[in-house]
């Protein structure tokens, strides 16, 4: 029994059917961690991107160094730091929040590069034309550069959303009961790992396919009138 739901081991099929609602409980946690982690990555990435294009190198360099550090160290180390080291300094976060934060921090390094790449891909002639027309820098950014960068940025961010979802099982090591962890516990208690693990793989596959279709849909339906995105 798990999450108050009994499993039925009378046949393999009955077992699979009975543990499905249990796995869905884990799936909810997985999706929550994905979404929270993703939003942290979006916001933090924006901050990093801004810092990395700051006018002074005293801001730029530390920001670049931090990005590099985040990218070049395993997610697990960052997770352990947040979970085990922060409490030593008196800051204890719930396991779920710690996990989501670790995902968000890890992926902010990638999203910041997506933002930067998207903005830099807008032709320099666009900035020059805006300057020649005396458009204010803020107006140029919000109405000339951003609308051309966003259609490039969104699909790339969508791909990272999928990646985050696939990294959520790592949070299991800090006691977050996401879907894969749930499947493992079912295996531990019933002695049958094949079915729960296969089902988790299947659910992941379906989610990834749906997400990929979503990204592709965005890619073709984003407002990019007039933009050629090669």
């Amino acid at each position: 029994m798990f999450f108050g739901i009994e499993w039925d081991t009378s046949s393999q099929w009955a077992f699979a059917v009975s543990i499905f609602p249990i796995l869905l409980h884990g799936l909810v946690i997985t999706l929550e961690a994905t979404v929270v982690g993703f939003f942290i990555a979006l916001a933090l990435g924006l901050v990093l991107a801004a810092l990395k294009s700051a006018p002074t190198r005293f801001i730029r360099w530390p920001a670049k160094l931090l990005t590099e550090f985040i990218r070049d160290t395993p997610l697990l180390i960052q997770l352990f730091f947040l979970f085990y080291v922060l409490p030593e300094f008196g800051l204890t976060l719930p396991a779920f929040l710690t996990g989501a934060l670790a995902l968000g921090v890890q992926y902010s390094a990638y999203t910041s590069e997506v933002y930067r790449g998207g903005l830099e891909a807008v032709a320099s002639g666009q900035r020059e034309a805006a300057r020649a027309l005396n458009l204010a820098p803020a107006r140029t950014f919000t109405h000339i550069i951003l609308p051309q960068a966003i259609p490039r940025i969104i699909p790339a961010l969508g791909n990272y959303l999928v990646s985050i979802m696939k990294d959520v099982p790592v949070l299991g090591v800090v006691t977050v009961l996401e879907m894969l962890g749930v499947a493992r516990i079912i295996g531990d208690r019933t002695g049958g790992y094949l079915i729960p693990l296969t089902m988790v793989g299947g659910i992941y596959l379906i989610l990834t396919i749906i997400a990929s279709l979503g990204v592709r849909y965005l890619d073709t339906h984003l407002p990019k009138r007039g933009l050629s995105l090669k």
């Binding site: 032709a123 002639g125 666009q126 020059e128 020649a132 000339i144 051309q148 407002p223 009138r225 007039g226």
Partner: peptide, 14 residues
């Protein structure tokens, strides 16, 4: 001043 560019530089989303 007004400028006309070799590559036009029109705003493609407008």
């Amino acid at each position: 001043m007004g400028m006309v560019f070799q590559q036009f530089n029109l705003f493609p989303h407008m």
